[in-house]
Amino acid sequence: MLDRIAALGRSVLDSIAGAGAAFFMLMRALLGKPQLRKSWPLLMQQMYSVGVLSLVIIVVSGLFIGMVLGLQGYTILVDFGAEQSLGPMVALSLLRELGPVVTALLFAGRAGSSLTAEIGLMKATEQLSSLEMMGVDPLRRVISPRFWAGFYSMPILAIVFSAVGIYGGYLVGVRWLGVDDGAFWSVMQSNVEWGQDILNGIIKSLVFAFVVTWIALHKGYSCTPTSVGISRATTSTVVTASLAVLGLDFVLTALMFG
C-alpha cells in the first residue's frame, strides 16, 4: 500500500517535472538574443520541411472535405428548399472549424510526428549532447527554428485548406449539382464576416500551431533515446497533440462564438 502511494507520488512528481521541463525548454528556446544571420537559413530550412512539404496533403484533403461538404450540405438543404445557403454553410464550416482543426490534426500527423522522430533520433545518436558539449545551445540551434517554422506554417496551411475547401464546395455545388453561381457567392458573402469568421479561424490556428509544435518538440526532446522510446514518443505526439487540439477547439469556440 505504501509502495503504491510512493509510486503515485513519484509519477505526480515526474509529470510536474515534465510540464516544468516543457515550459523551460520553450522559454529557453525562444528567449535570448536572436542571431538573424545564423537563424534565418535554419528557419528557411525548417519552413521547407514543415510547411512546404505538408502543402500537398493539405490541398488534397481540403479539396475533398470541401467537396464532401458541398455534397452533404446540398442533399440536406435541398429538402428545405434552402440550397442557396450551401455557400455560407461550406464557408462557415471550413473557416470556423474544419480549416483550423483538420489542418492541426493533419499537421500533428505529418509534421509533428516527424519533428518528434527527428529530434528523438538526434538525441539517440548523441547529436544534441554533442552540440551542448561544443558550446552550442541545442535549444536555440535545433528547437527554436523548428518551433517558429511550425508556428508560421500552420496558419498558412489552414488558410490554404479553407480556400481550397471552399473551391471544392463550389465545384460540387455549382458546377455539378447546379446551385446558382451568383447566389452561391453572394449568400456566402452576406454571411461570412472578415473579423468574426476569417480572423477568428486564423487565431484558432495560431493557438493550435503553438500547442502542436510545442508538444511535438518536447516529446522528441524528452524521449527515452532508444528505438522503443522514439516510437513511443512519436505516437504520443500524435495522440496528445490531437486531443489537445480538439479540447482547445471547444474552449476557443465557446469563447469566440458562444
Binding site: Q127, S129, G135
Partner: peptide, 17 residues
C-alpha cells in the same frame, strides 16, 4: 558554454550531424 569551448567530447556513436 564559454567553458565548454575549451573541452570536447568524442561520443560513442560519433554523433556526426
Amino acid at each position: 558554454y564559454e567553458l565548454r569551448k575549451r573541452m570536447s567530447m568524442l561520443f560513442q556513436s560519433g554523433a556526426l550531424f
